Simulated scan of single mutants.
Amino acid sequence: MEVGAMVSLPEELQAREDAARRRVEELQAESAELALRLEKARGDLSRLEITRETVAQVLTELSAAEAEPDAAAGGVPEIDASSVPHGVGVMMVPPWREGLVVAVLPDIYRDIVEIIADAPGPVQAKQIVPRIGLPTTTGKIEGTRGKLKRLVERGWLDEDTPGHFTLARQGPGRDRPNSQ
């Protein structure tokens, strides 16, 4: 500002307000762009997780079928916890079937099933997150909800009311989930 020129206070405030408004609009546009990129990245991650789980499941089933000739003849192969891979990069949740024990699940899924088994009634994702040692942020709750949905799809849990999870009626057994 020049030494002799006087700008009125209302004009200066209006100029600052206009600059702040432009900055807010720029940040909102950046935020919208980031939200779109985040949603795409989440979709990519979900597809990769599902692909990895499917490949691990197929490999486990193939190796079980090779190890047990009864499986090819229509028998259900027994799978014990030591034969199921539990390593970095493996997050396999096998479909529940008679004789399958909670121990075959990856640690986080097993913890979720055990928490639900110990609960007096239906449980929501936001109630499970702190019990598995995660912060109760939206991202962690949504990630846990995805795991709960996967356990429902595979027959380990039921979701009679949206967002409320219980042990599956035909699943690992309401009275003895930790006994095997």
Rank of each mutant, 00 (worst) to 15 (best):
G155P: 02
V129L: 06
R150S: 09
P95W: 03
K147E: 05
Y109V: 02
E11M: 13
A5K: 13
G74L: 05
L13Q: 13
L167D: 04
A103M: 02
E66S: 09
K40A: 15
D175V: 06
E17Y: 11
R169S: 14
P106D: 07
L157T: 04
V102L: 06
S82D: 15
M1L: 14
A67S: 15
L134I: 01
L62E: 15
E159R: 08
V104L: 08
P94Y: 04
A168K: 03
V7I: 15
R145H: 08
T166V: 13
E53T: 03
L134A: 06
A64D: 09
P94W: 01
E68T: 08
E78M: 07
R47C: 03
A15F: 07
Q28H: 12
A15Y: 04
R23S: 12
K40Y: 09
L34G: 00
A41F: 02
G133M: 02
R154Y: 00
G155R: 04
L148M: 10
Q127K: 09
P135S: 14
Q57M: 10
I128M: 04
E2L: 13
P122I: 05
E78W: 03
R176Y: 09
T136Q: 13
G121H: 10
R22M: 07
V7L: 15
L45V: 02
G43L: 02
G139N: 05
T161N: 08
A65V: 08
R16D: 11
G139I: 00
G4A: 14
E11K: 14
G89A: 08
A5T: 14
G74I: 05
I128Y: 01
E12H: 12
L34Q: 12
E159I: 07
A67I: 04
